[in-house]
Amino acid sequence: MKKALGILLLLSACEFRMDDETARKNLEPSVKIQFGDLAVGDRNVHYAFVDRQKEHLLVFVHGSPGSWNAFIDFFKADTLLHEFDMIAIDRPGFGGSGFGAAEPSLEKQAYQMNEVLKGFSGKQIILIGHSLGGPVIARMAMDYPNAYKGLILVAPSIDPELEEEGWYRKVISTEVGAFFTPKEFEVSNAEILTLKKELEEMLPLWKQIKIPTIVIQGTEDALVSKENAAFAKTMIPDSLLYVNLLEDANHFIPWSHPEEIVKAIRQLADRN
């Protein structure tokens, strides 16, 4: 995952966390959002959800840094709200899931997400992961192959060969570097430092993905190479994979092209 310092500094001004009460006010009265916390081992996993007893459950997993509210606009979308239940989860170290304490292991992150989703049993589950959320949901499908109906990988960091080790990451990981780094980026840095190794460990597991998968990737993504989409083609059979390359789109597809994600959701929901 390539991130220039200038972009990091720009993003540091963004609001990555939103407290539950602010989110509630942002969504109500049209959306009756609920919040939950689940203890998984020594971790707390925080999540937001709308449960109207629909057949399909959409699960949104954010990138790095980020939090569940990266997808708050999808909770407002009438076309989704009336047809799907939705849940967005704070990954470990972000939002309300042990903020500041990184969890570099994708296997452990996948386990934590899956434990939360056990509370929504009986639904057809579609996983949507943006950026680093992409390999997290891929790992979920690898480790729990019978639990999910489909995957939507949005600008995902999945090819270990494309992971570059920026010099600034080692600086951030020092005591002095951490002092001058916003906590969200300190956590992000910790999990991205080990991402290449984590993705290498996943290489023999891709064959365990047996569900339809859609990759949405921008051709002008400066943070995650579009070649990650090509990698997906080598790992997932053509019968299960559809790649949607968006011309001139950058990394921030959930906000610039949300309609493409909605279209992908419908494709998977309608597939038998």
Rank of each mutant, 00 (worst) to 15 (best):
residue 2 K to M: 02
residue 4 A to V: 10
residue 4 A to K: 13
residue 5 L to M: 13
residue 5 L to P: 04
residue 18 M to R: 13
residue 24 R to H: 11
residue 27 L to W: 09
residue 27 L to Y: 09
residue 29 P to R: 04
residue 30 S to V: 06
residue 30 S to M: 06
residue 32 K to D: 12
residue 33 I to E: 13
residue 33 I to S: 12
residue 38 L to Y: 05
residue 38 L to E: 07
residue 41 G to I: 04
residue 44 N to F: 02
residue 45 V to G: 07
residue 46 H to K: 03
residue 49 F to W: 10
residue 50 V to A: 07
residue 51 D to V: 00
residue 60 F to W: 11
residue 61 V to H: 08
residue 68 W to D: 09
residue 69 N to Y: 15
residue 72 I to P: 08
residue 73 D to I: 11
residue 75 F to A: 10
residue 75 F to E: 10
residue 77 A to S: 15
residue 78 D to H: 14
residue 80 L to C: 10
residue 81 L to W: 03
residue 82 H to S: 15
residue 88 A to M: 11
residue 90 D to I: 02
residue 96 G to R: 09
residue 100 G to W: 09
residue 101 A to E: 15
residue 101 A to N: 14
residue 102 A to Q: 04
residue 102 A to I: 01
residue 103 E to S: 09
residue 117 L to W: 06
residue 117 L to H: 07
residue 119 G to M: 00
residue 123 K to L: 11
residue 123 K to N: 12
residue 126 I to R: 02
residue 133 G to Y: 05
residue 134 G to M: 03
residue 137 I to H: 05
residue 143 D to M: 14
residue 152 I to D: 01
residue 154 V to L: 04
residue 154 V to W: 08
residue 155 A to V: 08
residue 156 P to M: 09
residue 162 L to N: 10
residue 163 E to W: 03
residue 164 E to Y: 11
residue 164 E to F: 06
residue 165 E to Y: 06
residue 166 G to R: 14
residue 174 T to S: 14
residue 181 T to D: 00
residue 182 P to Y: 02
residue 185 F to C: 02
residue 186 E to M: 07
residue 188 S to P: 04
residue 195 L to M: 14
residue 197 K to D: 14
residue 200 E to W: 12
residue 201 E to G: 12
residue 203 L to W: 03
residue 203 L to C: 04
residue 204 P to N: 15
residue 204 P to M: 12
residue 207 K to W: 04
residue 215 V to A: 05
residue 219 T to A: 03
residue 220 E to R: 04
residue 222 A to R: 10
residue 225 S to N: 05
residue 225 S to K: 01
residue 225 S to T: 04
residue 226 K to Y: 06
residue 227 E to H: 05
residue 227 E to D: 15
residue 229 A to Y: 13
residue 229 A to D: 13
residue 230 A to F: 05
residue 231 F to T: 08
residue 233 K to I: 05
residue 234 T to M: 15
residue 239 S to H: 01
residue 240 L to G: 06
residue 243 V to H: 08
residue 244 N to K: 14
residue 244 N to T: 06
residue 245 L to D: 10
residue 246 L to H: 03
residue 250 N to Q: 03
residue 252 F to C: 04
residue 253 I to N: 03
residue 254 P to M: 07
residue 254 P to E: 04
residue 256 S to E: 11
residue 257 H to K: 13
residue 258 P to Q: 01
residue 260 E to W: 02
residue 264 A to F: 00
residue 265 I to L: 02
residue 268 L to K: 00
residue 271 R to A: 09
